[in-house]
Amino acid sequence: MKRDIVKIDSERCTGCGECVKACSEGAIKMVGGKAVLTDEACCDGLGACLPACPAGAISIEERDVGTVPAHTAPEGMVPMTSCPGSGPRRIVRDGGQPEGSLSHWPVQLRLVPENAPYLKGCDLLVAADCSAFACGDFHRKFIEGHVTVIGCPKLDPRESWEKLSRIVAANDIRSITAVRMDVPCCSGIANAALSAARLCGKDIEVKIYTVRPDGKVME
């Protein structure tokens, strides 16, 4: 699977160890007086270590990191290229359904069409996809009154977050509420929301909330 990952130039590395301190995932270790990416699976590719390196020995590259076996379709069948359940649609509640505030589908940022009609002029919620599991009152606190997109800054490719900027620029978004988890790698949610608001060239209010694993919400 191709994704962003850290690359360390051993010749330029001075062995100061600052990148090891900056890596919240513990993916970089000192080996023989040089910084080495010892655990590719743990590297989130967000580059928190880049500004920590005084020698400029660290960069980000896109390359294959492990492989995922491809599933082949049975003989005589055409492989499905997209999920039939990912078509954009609004949710209309008739009163007989379980209580909830979600107004549309899909919600995964990678699946949301950039021109989905429900995005026009909306108040956008950009949430870490695990935050709703930690916050028991997530629907009332955040989803209600918002169009929701979710993602993971650690696992989703960079293209997904570039897509967020295009969504904000093309749909006259009124405001952005970003909900992240209280873990270092989740800062990418807040950064993506702020970047999208800045790049669109409009005055968009951005609110950022942090959810702790125990469910407490901090603004």
Rank of each mutant, 00 (worst) to 15 (best):
residue 187 S to W: 10
residue 70 A to N: 09
residue 45 G to Q: 01
residue 120 K to T: 10
residue 92 V to H: 13
residue 155 L to Q: 12
residue 27 A to I: 03
residue 3 R to G: 05
residue 63 R to V: 08
residue 173 I to G: 04
residue 198 R to A: 12
residue 126 V to M: 06
residue 26 G to S: 05
residue 199 L to C: 06
residue 101 S to E: 12
residue 94 D to P: 05
residue 6 V to M: 08
residue 166 R to C: 00
residue 81 T to S: 15
residue 5 I to V: 15
residue 130 C to W: 04
residue 154 K to E: 13
residue 202 K to E: 13
residue 174 R to A: 05
residue 43 C to L: 09
residue 191 N to E: 15
residue 110 R to L: 12
residue 41 A to N: 01
residue 47 G to S: 06
residue 8 I to P: 11
residue 91 I to N: 02
residue 141 K to P: 12
residue 115 N to T: 15
residue 146 H to K: 13
residue 137 D to T: 08
residue 47 G to W: 06
residue 218 M to A: 08
residue 10 S to D: 12
residue 215 G to W: 04
residue 122 C to P: 03
residue 99 E to R: 06
residue 141 K to Y: 01
residue 95 G to Y: 03
residue 2 K to M: 14
residue 194 L to V: 06
residue 206 V to I: 00
residue 50 L to K: 13
residue 113 P to D: 03
residue 80 M to I: 07
residue 202 K to W: 08
residue 102 L to F: 04
residue 56 G to K: 08
residue 208 I to T: 11
residue 60 I to T: 08
residue 109 L to C: 10
residue 178 A to R: 02
residue 109 L to V: 08
residue 196 A to F: 07
residue 200 C to N: 04
residue 172 D to N: 14
residue 82 S to K: 07
residue 7 K to W: 08
residue 4 D to L: 15
residue 57 A to N: 04
residue 186 C to A: 10
residue 104 H to S: 07
residue 98 P to K: 03
residue 7 K to S: 14
residue 217 V to D: 01
residue 151 G to Y: 07
residue 205 E to P: 14
residue 102 L to E: 02
residue 81 T to M: 15
residue 129 D to S: 07
residue 15 G to P: 06
residue 117 P to E: 12
residue 47 G to Y: 05
residue 29 K to I: 02
residue 5 I to Q: 00
residue 43 C to F: 03
residue 146 H to F: 03
residue 28 I to E: 05
residue 159 E to P: 14
residue 114 E to D: 12
residue 167 I to N: 10
residue 80 M to E: 13
residue 111 L to E: 15
residue 182 D to F: 00
residue 120 K to P: 00
residue 53 C to S: 05
residue 85 G to N: 13
residue 163 K to V: 07
residue 25 E to Y: 08
residue 212 R to T: 13
residue 52 A to G: 03
residue 126 V to Q: 02
residue 173 I to R: 01
residue 200 C to Y: 01
residue 140 R to C: 05
residue 41 A to C: 11
residue 186 C to L: 06
residue 38 T to V: 15
residue 98 P to T: 06
residue 120 K to H: 09
residue 195 S to G: 06
residue 30 M to P: 00
residue 217 V to I: 15
residue 167 I to F: 14
residue 162 E to K: 13
residue 109 L to T: 06
residue 14 T to V: 14
residue 186 C to P: 12
residue 65 V to N: 00
residue 139 H to Q: 14
residue 25 E to D: 06
residue 134 A to D: 10
residue 32 G to M: 02
residue 17 G to F: 00
residue 123 D to S: 14
residue 29 K to W: 04
residue 194 L to D: 08
residue 179 V to W: 01
residue 126 V to I: 09
residue 195 S to F: 12
residue 186 C to I: 05
residue 59 S to E: 15
residue 199 L to Q: 11
residue 10 S to H: 10
residue 106 P to Q: 07
residue 8 I to S: 10
residue 111 L to H: 11
residue 175 S to R: 10
residue 182 D to P: 03
residue 193 A to L: 02
residue 164 L to G: 03
residue 103 S to Q: 13
residue 209 Y to T: 10
residue 193 A to H: 04
residue 204 I to E: 08
residue 185 C to I: 09
residue 20 V to S: 09
residue 127 A to Q: 04
residue 16 C to R: 07
residue 82 S to T: 10
residue 75 E to H: 13
residue 86 S to Y: 10
residue 53 C to Y: 05
residue 13 C to K: 01
residue 24 S to P: 07
residue 39 D to M: 09
residue 83 C to E: 11
